[in-house]
Amino acid sequence: MTATPSAERSRPAQRQAEIAEYVVSHGSVSATDLADQFGVSLMTIHRDLDELERQGVVRKHRGGVSAQPSSVFESNVSYRLQATLPEKRALARQARTLIEPGMAVMLDDSTSTLELARLLDGITPLTVVTNFLETVKLLAGRPGIRLLTLGGEYHPTHDSFLGVPCIEAVEALRVDVLFASTSAISGGYAYHQEQEIVLVKRAMMRAAQRSVLMVDHTKLGRVALHRLAPLREFELVLTDGQADRQSLAEMREHGVRYEVVA
C-alpha cells in the first residue's frame, strides 16, 4: 500500500492526529495495518498508539486498537489541535474578511477559532474576548489588541474556562460578532457532546450581535448528545470544499446561509 504523506520522518504529532482520524473512521484496526497505511515501522506505530491512548483518543487491545467514544476524543484539545488543520485554516482566512478595525470579537474555545486568532495582526485596534487558554496565550501582549479573558472553572481537557462564572462573565458583555465552532451539525441544528460547553456557547450567541459558525466537513451530517441551536440563528455558516452535497442541500432546505471555502 502506498504510504500517506505522513511518513516516518513526519512530525509525530501530525502523524498521530492522522492515525486517530483513521482509527475513528474505521472503528477498529490492527497495528500492522496502520504501519502499512502510514509507511512507518511497527515500533513507531506502537509508540504513536501509546501516546494516543495516554491522551484518551484510542484504546489499545490485543492485536489492534479501537476508537474511544466520540465524547472522549472529540473533546480532547491535543487531538483537536492537530485534526483537519488545512480546512480550519481555510475557514479562518474567510472569517478574517468579516472583521474590521474597532470591532469587539468573541472567540469560543474551538481550535477553528484559534486559527482565526493567528490572523488578527493588522486588524487593529481590536477587542478580543475568549475563554480558550490557547488563544489567550497567543494574543497576550499583541500590539493593538485589547484582550478580555473569560474566567470560570478551568477544564484541562478543553484547555478552557467554563461553568457559571464564565457564563456570567459572558452575559456582562456585548460584542459585534462571535466566531464559534461545534462538533456536529445535522437536520438544521448544531450539536455538541458536552452540556457545559453548550451552555457557554449559547451565552456567547446571546452576547453577540452576529454569530458565525465555522465547521469543517467532518462535522457535517453528524449529531452529538446536546442540541446547541438552530443553524438559522447563525448569520453565516462557513464550511470547506470537501463538504458533501447532501449536507449542503439540507442547509439550503432549512434556510441556512452558508459559504463553502476553497
Results as ranks from 00 to 15, higher is better:
Q68S: 14
A117F: 03
N131I: 01
L148K: 10
L85C: 11
M106R: 06
L120W: 08
D108I: 04
G144Q: 01
M103S: 07
S75R: 14
E87A: 15
G102T: 05
S75Y: 08
T97D: 12
S66M: 14
L52W: 11
T44I: 01
S71D: 15
K137P: 00
I145K: 01
G63C: 11
A140Y: 02
Y154E: 00
L138W: 00
T111V: 09
N76F: 06
F73L: 12
G122V: 10
Q68P: 10
G102F: 02
N131C: 11
K88M: 11
R146T: 12
D159Q: 06
T84E: 13
E53D: 09
S70L: 10
L126V: 03
E74Q: 15
S78G: 12
P156A: 14
R54S: 13
S110C: 12
R93D: 12
Q55L: 15
L162N: 01
I167H: 05
D108M: 07
T157S: 06
V57K: 00
L138H: 05
K88W: 03
V57P: 07
Q82E: 14
K88T: 07
G122I: 05
H61Y: 10
T149E: 04
L91D: 02
V65Q: 01
G141E: 03
P165A: 00
A117C: 04
L150E: 01
R89S: 06
Q55A: 14
L139T: 09
D159V: 01
T97F: 06
L98D: 12
G64F: 07
R59W: 00
T157H: 01
L85M: 13
L119Q: 13
S66L: 13
K60G: 05
S70M: 14
E134N: 06
S70Q: 14
A92S: 10
C166N: 14
A90T: 05
L85F: 00
E168S: 03
G64S: 03
E53N: 12
V77W: 08
E51Q: 15
M106S: 13
R146V: 08
P69C: 11
